[in-house]
């Protein structure tokens, strides 16, 4: 196979997953998604190699690579590192130019991001010290109910009621959940309450940065349909349907930024 054209890659190494996107001629050419390990260099490379393999490319074929996510500082394969807040903004704007507000929920943090029509960040807020409101929180809850993480959302959506839950702290919520189970509350109602408590926490972040339509939900937790519904209710908005796996948005943004850097540095005309 003959390789031609300019290829730009974005690699997003998060706390739970490493993702990569390769762009060719302005189109998504290949993607990679692997679980993050202890070694963030290795995790990023695994994600990148997966996308390269899918595309039939070698690393040398890439014109520019941008690293993002918590592993971006340990990304010797990348030409530059950019924070995932900027990358989620660019990635969302690339796919959905009408979006002005992004909710990004990843493994260890959640972010409220406001962007302008060019995809530049106007304001943002993040959770500070606690895992409540993040993917890790949902993982803990999946463990409590002994269900698969990916099934949490659909179970919550089957609820007939919403049990009010604490969104203060993962540990408090876990203990509260165990008490509720012992009292005979239905698991789906408790899970529904958990999703709504997270959504309320996110709504608090938006009190700082504001909301403007359209609204997009990115990150691994965006695949959770129960979370999407709870956020829509908490923020009283309708969330734009993603065109690709929302977990890849950060990596996509990094690839878009890679293309911009390459142009700026004269590597691509």
């Amino acid at each position: 196979m003959t390789i031609s054209g300019n290829y730009f890659a974005g690699v997003d190494v998060g706390s739970l997953a490493a993702k990569s996107v390769i762009l060719k001629d302005g189109e998504i050419f290949a993607t990679g998604l692997v679980q993050s390990g202890v070694n963030s260099v290795e995790s990023g490379l695994n994600a990148l190699n997966l996308a390269l393999e899918t595309a039939g490319l070698k690393k040398e074929d890439l014109t520019y690579i941008v690293g993002t996510g918590y592993g971006r500082v340990s990304a010797p394969y990348a030409n530059k590192a950019v924070t995932e807040i900027t990358c989620h903004a660019k990635g969302t704007n690339y796919l959905h130019p009408t979006v002005r507000t992004i909710i990004d929920m990843g493994g260890q943090d959640c972010k409220a991001i406001r962007i302008d029509p060019d995809g530049a960040v106007v304001d943002f807020a993040m959770n500070d010290k606690c895992a409540a409101g993040t993917g890790r929180f949902l993982e803990v809850m999946a463990g409590v109910f002994k269900v698969k993480l990916e099934d949490l959302g659909s179970i919550a959506l089957s609820a007939t009621d919403t049990v009010p839950m604490s969104s203060t702290c993962t540990v408090f919520a876990e203990s509260e959940t165990i008490s509720l189970v012992a009292r005979g509350e239905k698991p789906e109602n408790i899970l529904n309450g958990i999703h709504h408590s997270i959504a309320n926490r996110i709504a608090g972040l938006f009190s700082r940065v504001g909301i403007e339509s359209d609204v997009f939900f990115s990150g691994g937790v965006a695949k959770n349909s129960g979370m999407k519904t709870a956020i829509e209710q908490a923020l009283k908005v309708s969330i734009v349907k993603p065109e690709i796996d929302p977990q890849l948005i950060g990596a996509l943004g990094a690839a878009v930024i890679a293309r911009n850097f390459a142009k700026k540095e004269g590597l691509w005309v």
Binding site: V82, I85, T86, F124, A125, K129
Partner: peptide, 24 residues
């Protein structure tokens, strides 16, 4: 606004937020 842990080994999380603010 950022809350931090005094004398914690929290450099990356904090720098991530600061860098995002600078990029913004």
């Amino acid at each position: 606004i950022h809350e931090r842990d005094l004398h914690g080994l929290r450099d990356e999380q904090e720098q991530n937020r600061v860098n995002a603010f600078i990029e913004m």
